[in-house]
Design a protein around this nucleic acid. Structure first.
Length: 600
RNA sequence: UGCCCGAUGGUGUAAUGGUAGCACAAACGACUCUGACUCGUUUUGUCUAGGUUCGAGUCCUAGUCGGGCAGCCA
């Protein structure tokens, strides 16, 4: 069964940004809606990014538009190709079968093409269809030549100047939120001198931090970002994508708005913290007097999930301190972690729809995510029998060499359920939780003298509890009522409980990793010392008994171990010779929630 | 004591001047060869104070609370 169910994507949502886009579509303001997802390749993508991906690609697909994947790589000190590769893989996984058609890539190695339009300098980089062969994502660093040319225009127009202030002096001159800044002594340099200095900055004549290129706006602006913000800084550093071609690098505010323009972005959607940068975004584009339609920035609140952290710094700490095994540890909130955990991409898209898009910075209950995961998996997963904590049970009226074939269903939710055979034998394993010598009130499962149904098999009665010298239960001796088998004369006999089981002689062993929430509190990121909230039981490794049909299970398969939860073969560690399953998530458990709950 | 943004049940969101709705969560019940799924019922909400209006969650004013902004990070 396929893991991806594109058709299971919920209907197109509506929100304030989509409303704006719809308005623009109605006005025919743009020939085509173009959005972009612009991660910095300095870490792995996580669920927070997923919300942005779903929004940007969602807008594109709902309007017959396109969404460019762009590496926002203007800071060579922090960025690496390893991250570029993981980002591409994660984005393609998340949108697979849903928005692939909208993914904007460019020819490998392509940079914006220069042309003059009505005497105005222009650059444009057209996207190409994904299937056109040699393609790659957009890179802000591919725009460096165009960005440089535009910086020259800014200088010529008197909108930018080279400043010799040191980083510390620049900070002092900037003032503070409630105190205006002071003009830099270099603010009044002539265009000729600025051009010469900027050219020499590029040529490598000055050391890091010696000079910078600044926009000439207003040092007294109440908006800090309008107080002559830096456009270029000197960094004699090798860049992962451009090598040693440059020693000056543009800053975010300068590179981002222009990269949007160069790619023909119409709607530049970002998170709330960039709201105060929007005037600068508009100022730069406005100062350049550009010939084509300008992009506009819209901001929304990023995703916050309870019991989860998204800070790249803290996620890195978890990896470095070996609290988790890697960036793709199934407990990590990264997309690669979720993938390895067995979370379908469709479940993440469902979450994105469920949380909506607003400007309110709230905290979403992780239960919303878990519900989305169960919703998708319930439809997708193949039901299988597996016993996590086995107790031996002997059916004393079945001869040792007899095998009774029982019919089991792969997925009762499917339109035409597929069936398979499971073998009932004299000795089986049941879950230790499913027997209680002294049952709590309302206990539906097996107890001394009690009856219960073995799922897909028959009703059994517990006759005897056998214990060892320490008092531990070694086996349960029961009688099987074969007349209650499916198709049997008493098949319709009702008992309160039905439990899962596997044949003791025909089952196979597998390592099972039982994952749980990584943190014990709803807001682990609220305090600096977030590691004290780590859940010590976030991973338990056991050896379980599985029905033999699971032998060939692949990481692309999705299973529900009946009455237990959803499980997936681990993509890294599971082999045909040694199966390893990850628990994606437990089934909802109303009994567990009630109280006198045995450990699951 | 600067500027920007926000505030609707426990949580997230809808209502675009006209019956406060949905989802999750919680509780109870029905169904059940998964204590799952499904179905039904229930609890809980417009930050405060003024104003405009026949009518305000929605518009205006002031306040309260929360978030963001002073990287040569993004």
């Amino acid at each position: 069964m396929s893991v991806e169910h594109p058709e299971s994507a919920p209907p197109a949502p509506s929100d304030f940004i989509r409303d704006i886009v719809a308005q623009h579509v109605a006005e025919k303001r743009y020939a085509k809606i173009v959005t972009r997802f612009p991660p910095e390749p300095n870490g792995y993508l996580h669920m927070g990014h997923a919300k942005s991906i779903c929004l940007n690609f969602g807008i594109a697909r709902e309007n017959g538009g396109q969404c460019n994947l762009r590496m926002d790589d203007t800071n060579p000190a922090k960025e690496e190709v390893e991250y570029v590769d993981s980002i591409i893989a994660d984005v393609r996984w998340l949108i697979f079968g849903w928005a692939d058609d909208c993914l904007g890539f460019k020819p490998k190695g392509a940079a914006p093409v220069r042309n003059e339009s009505n005497g105005k300098l222009d650059f444009y980089l057209a996207p190409v269809p994904l299937d056109s062969g040699n393609t790659e994502p957009f890179f802000a660093s591919d725009n460096f030549d165009a960005l440089y040319a535009y910086a020259v225009v800014l200088i010529q127009k008197g909108h930018a100047y080279v400043c010799d202030l040191s980083p510390k002096e620049t900070e002092e001159y900037r003032g503070s939120p409630d105190k205006p800044g002071r003009d830099s002594p270099h603010r009044t340099r002539s265009a000729t001198e600025n051009l010469d200095l900027f050219q020499r900055m590029r040529a490598g004549e000055f050391p890091d931090g010696a000079r910078s290129l600044r926009a000439k706006i207003d040092m007294a602006s109440p908006n800090i970002w309008l107080r002559d913000p830096l456009l270029y800084r000197i960094r004699h550093t090798t860049h992962h994508h451009t090598g040693n071609k440059w020693c000056i690098y543009p800053l975010y505010d300068y590179a981002h708005c222009l990269s949007d323009y160069l790619e023909g972005i119409t709607h530049s959607v970002c998170t709330l913290e960039f709201e105060v940068h929007r005037p600068l975004y508009d100022w730069i584009l406005g100062a350049l007097d550009l010939p084509r339609a300008l992009p506009h920035q819209y901001e929304f609140a990023k995703l916050n999930l309870s019991y989860t952290i998204f800070s790249k710094r803290r996620l890195l700490q978890l990896v470095q301190d070996k609290i988790v095994s890697s960036w793709d540890d199934p407990r990590m909130p990264t997309l690669s972690g979720a993938r390895r955990r067995g979370i379908p991409a469709s479940a993440i898209r469902r979450l994105a729809t469920a949380v909506g898009v607003t400007k309110y910075d709230g905290l979403t209950d992780v239960a919303v995510y878990e519900h989305a995961v169960r919703e998708e998996l319930n439809a997708l997963a193949l039901r299988r029998l597996a016993v996590l904590r086995p107790v031996k049970l002997v059916l004393t009226n079945i001869p040792p060499d007899e095998t009774i074939a029982c019919e089991a269903v792969d997925n009762p939710q499917a339109e035409n359920p597929v069936k398979r055979k499971v073998a009932l034998t004299r000795e089986v394993f049941i879950e230790s939780d499913d027997f209680a010598e002294v049952p709590p009130p309302k206990y539906f499962r097996l107890k001394p003298g009690g009856e219960v149904r073995l799922k897909y098999a028959c009703i059994i009665q517990c006759d005897e509890v056998v214990k060892d010298a320490t008092g531990a239960i070694t086996e349960l001796r029961c009688t099987a009522d074969l007349t209650t088998r499916s198709g049997g004369p008493n098949a319709d006999k009702k008992v309160k409980g039905t439990i899962h089981w596997v044949s003791a002689t025909e089952s196979i062993d597998a390592e099972v990793r039982l994952y749980d929430r990584l943190f014990t509190v709803a807001e682990p990121g609220a305090e600096e010392d977030f590691k004290k909230f780590i859940n010590p039981h976030s991973l338990e490794v056991i050896v379980a008994k599985l029905e033999p049909s699971l032998k060939g299970a692949q990481p692309s398969d999705r299973f529900q171990f009946e009455r237990l939860g959803y499980f997936v073969p681990d993509a890294k560690d599971s082999t045909p010779g040694k199966l390893v399953f990850n628990r994606t998530i437990t089934l909802k458990d109303a009994w567990l929630a009630k109280g006198p709950a045995p450990k699951k």
